[in-house]
Write a protein that binds this DNA or RNA. Structure first.
Lengths: 192, 192
DNA sequence: GTCTATATACCGATAGAC
DNA sequence: GTCTATCGGTATATAGAC
């Protein structure tokens, strides 16, 4: 509908996105979702077929969101390598973890194609986009010719995801900064 | 006791370690632990004060185990950089994830110092050990002088942990290989 | 040391009134 | 569309017999 304001459905989705990020699929109980959304049981089961359907839609939206954030850095004008570095320097909440990457450890998510779809889609897109840019950077002689874009792009994404793991394990956001500084130095040869 | 064979206590610990790896702390229920160990309720609550105590001991053992595996690669003879690369090439079950790193996303683990202790201890030790080796490699001019060992060591560990995330998200173990090949190429300048 | 029985809470979903 | 009542199942732990 036009000009509708925030509906119960919206509130349920927001609540689910937040709880999936904080506690994962197993930890996001319908009761907690409803409570956070300030909505009753009936409303939730009216708008969605259950926890799973809610989670599929929530994850799809979250993956889309962070893809747009990545594109904002990757699609800016300038040399290809600068754009990769700009993406690495995007602000991240290291202690909260990646709202998409954290789902990879939830066995219920990994085992369910509908739940894993948005997760796989995001990482497939991101690694491929970075591969293109690194290919471009290599052609422009911004990175060494021996560096395989298909491998380095995956290493870049892995560094970010691992940065979240370390920051949370050590309860120290500077682990993320160190990981990113390390990979930027490796990529740019000290010129970044 | 001497020559005791496998006790119920041992079986409970093994079972807990496996379930923590597969399903995390939230997903490892006492009932499942007992069933897998082929042990009754009473036995479990006789040997341990509950799920938490069991998990603390299980995680401590697991962290110790993978530390020993890492040391086997890092402490071999030869140039420092070769040993770092040897560690990166250690065999890993990419689709299962890291039994220690995966705990970083479990909010109940992160919030509990006794549970997080082994996780933090492992990563603190590993990044520090790699930092020493990279310092040595830099002194020996095996890596470029502009590379800060404190950052690159964290980036190396992050690449491994992120490799697990990507392999699971894409359900493809080659994501781990690609990430490792990428970071090895960045480190060695194509000579690795 | 190990077992079965029991307890309290929460999980995820359904039923049916309004 | 939203609410409350209710359900069968599971999570985590305790009690007490043997």
């Amino acid at each position: 509908m036009y000009c509708q304001g925030v509906t119960n459905r919206d509130r349920l989705l927001e609540s689910t996105r937040a709880l999936l990020w904080e506690r994962g699929y197993i930890g996001a109980s319908p009761a907690a979702i409803q409570q956070r959304a300030k909505v009753g049981q009936g409303s939730m089961y009216h708008h969605f077929d259950g926890k799973r359907g809610l989670a599929v839609e929530a994850l799809t939206t979250t993956a889309q969101d962070i893809r747009l954030r990545a594109e904002a850095a990757l699609d800016r004008p300038g040399p290809a390598l600068d754009r990769v570095v700009a993406y690495l320097r995007v602000e991240r909440e290291a202690l909260r973890g990646c709202p998409v990457g954290r789902m990879a450890f939830d066995p219920d998510v990994v085992a369910d194609d509908a739940l894993r779809g948005p997760v796989e889609g995001y990482f497939s897109w991101l690694t491929e986009r970075l591969r293109q840019l690194l290919e471009e950077a290599r052609t422009a002689e911004q990175i060494a010719p021996h560096l395989a874009p298909a491998d380095v792009s995956v290493a870049v994404v892995a560094t970010i995801q691992g940065g979240y793991v370390l920051a949370r394990a050590l309860q120290d956001p500077s682990a993320m900064s160190a990981a990113l500084d390390g990979v930027i130095a490796l990529l740019t040869g000290g010129k970044g």
